[in-house]
């Protein structure tokens, strides 16, 4: 499955937050979005996951066009901006509630995903007592737990220490085979470490595309 973004423009209050974006994303790769705060990285992610509607252009996912053939991509997991969960429930309970909507995975699979991001699945502490790093890890677990074909992670390394970043790198490499993984990060070094290809975004435009060696 590929994502083909053609002439994508999004205008909000007269400003082009995304400006004529043309990129093709293929399965099996980790794509990085680089750019300053407010450059349009998160907006592009929101557009790919169907939360915002393009002013013009289209996003083709596989055989279908987003917003025409489906409102949201058929198989997607996201972590957009800060992870947000119900503060009074544990990490496991939060993920269980979300997973219960599609009912695709069982408790053991949820627990394994929580373990894979370095958290304890039987930790009964409520989410509000989690550290920033733990919240971030839980957000990543939520995005990947149902094995979606597209994974969008907005600033996944926020609040993670070096070992956390290494763990996420290994995790993404392990799961990328038949998936498209898109991550955004304002730290160039971390993004180089995590990605196979990088798109540099500035003022809503893709101004550079590099392969990471």
């Amino acid at each position: 499955m590929d994502i083909n973004i053609e002439n994508l423009t999004k205008t909000i209050n007269g400003i082009n937050v995304l400006d004529n974006i043309n990129i093709i994303l293929n399965s099996g790769k980790i794509y990085g979005l680089s750019g300053k705060n407010g450059s349009g990285k998160t907006m592009l992610m929101r557009a790919i996951c169907g939360l915002i509607k393009p002013t013009s252009g289209k996003i083709q996912i596989g055989e279908g066009v987003l917003g025409k053939d489906f409102s949201f991509p058929p198989s997607i997991g996201v972590l957009i901006e800060n992870p947000s969960f119900v503060p009074r429930y544990s990490g496991f309970k939060n993920l269980k509630i979300i997973a219960s909507i599609q009912n695709k995975i069982d408790d053991n699979q949820i627990k394994n995903t929580i373990k894979s991001v370095g958290l304890d699945p039987i930790d009964r502490r409520p989410y509000r007592k989690y550290s920033l790093g733990m919240k971030q890890r839980l957000g990543i677990a939520c995005a990947i737990m149902e094995n979606p074909k597209i994974i969008l992670l907005d600033e996944p390394t926020n609040a993670l220490d070096e070992s956390g970043i290494k763990l996420i790198k290994e995790l993404l490499i392990n799961i990328r085979d038949d998936r498209i993984i898109i991550i955004s990060c304002h730290d160039k070094e971390e993004l180089h470490y995590l990605s196979d290809e990088i798109f540099v975004i500035s003022e809503g435009k893709v101004i550079d595309h590099k392969l990471v060696e």
């Binding site: 996951c49 169907g50 489906f70 409102s71 949201f72 997607i76 119900v86 939060n94 979300i98 599609q102």
Partner: peptide, 15 residues
């Protein structure tokens, strides 16, 4: 909508 709702929306697929 701005907490677990985004996670719900991408799973239920219909606004």
């Amino acid at each position: 909508l701005f907490t677990t709702g985004v996670q719900s929306l991408i799973r239920i697929k219909k606004r």
